[in-house]
């Protein structure tokens, strides 16, 4: 059964009227953005395109704002701020960063992590490892009270030790639980990072003398 069919059945059952109305169709929310807002957002997007930064997150932010019922000026401000963070993240991570890494880095910057820390992490990790999840977890633990330097060091040590995404996920979950149970955030992050790198003994990243030569 497809998701759409399931949804239709739910609608028929009369539940939908209470569920999905927090959308643009809700009369309490602006049904459409007004012309000045659209023009302002288009200008931000055009500028982002010219700089070579990902634009999908900007549309996502606009949609989020509309869905949340925000007014036009606030949506434009948020889209513009995100565009600046994306540009800074792009500069910090370099030309070879993926769109997802740039997006994750921009939100990490929004959480208070300086671009320079993210750039360091990127340069340390090389090309083989995506930093999308490490940046996301970094932002998360900082939002839970782990000091930026401690958090960045913890993530750097994990990535440096070759931790996989699963290890990074486990680290986030453990730090979160520790803090919820009353541990000082910095101590939780430091201890869990040490634990992760000691016990897991992840594989060292492969090091080859020559890069893959692409024969054509």
């Amino acid at each position: 059964m497809t998701m759409r069919t399931t949804r239709n059945l739910v609608l028929l059952a009369g539940l939908a009227s209470m569920s999905v109305r927090a959308t643009a169709q809700d009369p309490r929310l602006p049904a459409r953005l007004d012309a000045p807002t659209i023009a302002a957002i288009n200008a931000v997007v055009d500028s982002a395109k010219a700089q070579g930064i990902p634009i999908a997150p900007l549309y996502d932010k606009m949609n989020e704002g509309v869905a949340a019922g925000a007014d036009g000026p606030l949506i434009v401000k948020s889209v513009r701020n995100l565009s600046m963070d994306l540009a800074s993240a792009h500069r910090a991570l370099g030309a070879l960063a993926t769109a997802d890494e740039i997006k994750a880095a921009a939100y990490a910057m929004h959480a208070g992590i300086p671009a320079v820390e993210l750039g360091k992490l990127k340069r340390q990790s090389g090309l083989r490892r995506s930093l999308t999840l490490p940046f996301t977890v970094l932002a998360d633990i900082v939002s839970r009270g782990v000091p930026v330097t401690t958090a960045a060091n913890a993530i750097r040590s994990l990535v440096g030790a070759g931790a996989k995404d699963k290890d990074i996920n486990d680290f986030q979950r453990n730090v979160k639980v520790d803090i919820e149970q009353g541990a000082p955030p910095a101590a939780a992050a430091e201890t869990r990072a040490k634990g992760a790198t000691k016990s897991d003994k992840p594989d060292k990243p492969e090091k080859t003398d020559k890069p893959e030569q692409i024969e054509l």
Partner: peptide, 10 residues
């Protein structure tokens, strides 16, 4: 993980 960027209070 929490996401920052709750510009709209959500």
């Amino acid at each position: 993980p929490r996401s920052s960027g709750d510009d709209f209070g959500m």
